[in-house]
Design a protein around this nucleic acid. Structure first.
Lengths: 187, 187
DNA sequence: ATGGTGTTAATACTAGGTACTAAAACCAAG
DNA sequence: CTTGGTTTTAGTACCTAGTATTAACACCAT
């Protein structure tokens, strides 16, 4: 990497740091062919925090996704979650969810959205679906935005009865009842 | 947090670190009411790396894998198909089908396998799932080979009643009844 | 040659450790 | 009660990847 003017170097620095937040000042100094001190002045001017802060930030946002487990593991986007009671998730229907021939969405995407939402609202570390009753009311097409609302309607022991209703912008298109079993013990 | 015996303390330490990888030795020492040195000895015995390593690891594994269900038309491999009557499909359970935390397969993969098989055996150009009744009997783990057998048990007008039974090598693990609607002119 | 900007160097200090040695504290059996 | 072993704490030197600050040098233009 050839040596360049200050402005250009700072732009490169920002790009590097964004792409690889794990680089230390020393490594960056090597890459940009300037001294460590120059890197530090640049970081100060640009308001870039030190390596350990950068790593920390990446880890924290990563943890958010895992801790609420649910985020990474849910099909659809969780937009509201009242753990133990209810939740709402969004799923935009894209081309790759369709049957090529009929251009109708494959039913298991709606199932997956509803099922993962049902599991997410259960306030228990381990839960599996025991039983599901599904009703598809309308075929779904590409571009539709599916809003699934889930609600725990009953709890008996470790069995949760969850109802999920999914709408597009005009109708209810799908409905599901799940019995979710929480398994208290770790294996 | 009251002071406890070594073994117990080490167990607590492991739990703490797992739950909150960001805690420093000093903070852990405060929580467990022992000295920093004790925490360090414990970490050494248990092979727990220092805070910065732990944070780094969390950040690195943040490489998110997005849940993408198969793009093919059928989830699983169709190995036998008697159109209008029955069919069999295989699905090998892989790592990416599991919940990270519990290492149990996400239920909608079994659903997807069964549902797509049910649609495949209908001898009609366009068919959609109307209703599904699902029962999960056993949690599924990585490496298992799921064999789904589907059979049309009844037909009334444009409605097909399909039963699917899924086994691993030892038990029936899943069972589904679908009502599939073929749409010649409807909708 | 004199400034001004840009760059590098050097020093003191910090957090959160590792690696090691040594001294206490505790508990259990002879 | 004393002796020995485990457990816990203390202390030191050293490490990385910095912050904060001061000083010196390099270069380019007026």
């Amino acid at each position: 990497m050839a040596r360049v003017k200050k402005k250009e170097r700072q732009a490169l620095l920002q790009k590097q740091v964004k792409a690889k937040p794990f680089l230390t000042d020393e490594e960056l100094a090597g890459i940009l062919e300037v001294s460590i001190q120059t890197i530090r002045l640049d970081r100060m001017e640009l308001g870039i925090p030190e390596v350990r802060e950068r790593i920390r930030k990446v880890a924290e946002t990563a943890q958010d996704k895992i801790v609420s487990m649910d985020k990474g593991e849910v099909v659809g986007e969780l937009i509201d979650l009242d753990r133990g009671h209810s939740g709402i998730s969004l799923l935009r229907v894209t081309e790759d969810m369709l049957f090529a021939r009929t251009r109708i969405a494959k039913g298991y995407f709606m199932f997956a959205q509803a099922n993962s939402l049902a599991l997410a609202i259960i306030d228990a570390p381990m839960a599996v679906t025991g039983v599901a009753n599904i009703k598809y009311k309308t075929p779904i097409h590409a571009g539709e935005m599916l809003v699934a609302k889930a609600e725990i309607v009953k709890q008996r022991g470790n069995k949760y009865f969850v109802w999920v209703k999914t709408r597009n912008d005009s109708h209810e298109v799908f409905r599901a009842k799940f019995i979710v079993v929480s398994m208290a013990q770790e294996n």
